[in-house]
């Protein structure tokens, strides 16, 4: 769609009356056509009200604070690594609880701790697969509780 969009189509677009494929074509056109985008903005029924809203003003300059905080705080490990690490620890505890074998559990636990210490290399498969089966139960339980905790704002989720 290279030419400008006819006004009746833009009106229907603003009202949400077009089918999705045509609507997407028009949205893509608007992203690259300031003239049509301006026309759409004027058609929006609350355009005057939106234009009357002043921008909130940042009360303080945050540059120094942010730079200081960024240099103080180490970057956090990605959530997937932390979750996997917790899952592995839970699995070690579960192994001990289920089998009650102190020697076997110690072996598993030492593998787990080594895996957690080398968290960055977990994804490369250096952890023995024997841990993986026992990790599943713990990781699943943690994932379920984590998912439940995330679902407290209906319909609004992390991207």
């Amino acid at each position: 769609m290279s030419a400008h969009v006819p006004e009746d189509l833009l009106v229907a677009f603003v009202e949400g009356e077009l089918d999705e494929s045509l609507g997407i074509h028009i949205a893509e056109h608007l992203d690259g056509c300031p003239a049509c985008a301006t026309q759409v903005a004027a058609l929006e029924p609350l355009a005057v009200a939106f234009a009357s809203v002043d921008d909130p003003v940042l009360p303080i300059d945050l540059v120094d604070q942010v730079l200081a905080a960024a240099s103080e705080q180490p970057a956090q490990a990605p959530v997937t690594e932390v979750t996997l690490g917790l899952g592995l620890l839970a699995a070690a505890a579960a192994t001990f609880a289920l089998f009650g074998d102190p020697v076997g559990s110690m072996i598993h636990l030492s593998m787990v701790l080594e895996a957690v210490a080398k968290m960055g290399t977990v994804a490369n498969g250096t952890v023995a697969t024997s841990v993986a089966a026992t990790a599943t139960a713990g990781a699943t339980a943690l994932a379920c509780s984590w998912a439940a905790a995330r679902a407290t704002v209906p319909g609004w989720k992390h991207a």
Partner: peptide, 17 residues
């Protein structure tokens, strides 16, 4: 204002990290 300021700072720190 206060929550927005905290959220802004956290966002920018995370952006750098």
């Amino acid at each position: 204002d206060e929550d927005a300021l905290d959220a802004t700072q956290d966002t920018l720190v995370k952006m750098l990290h």
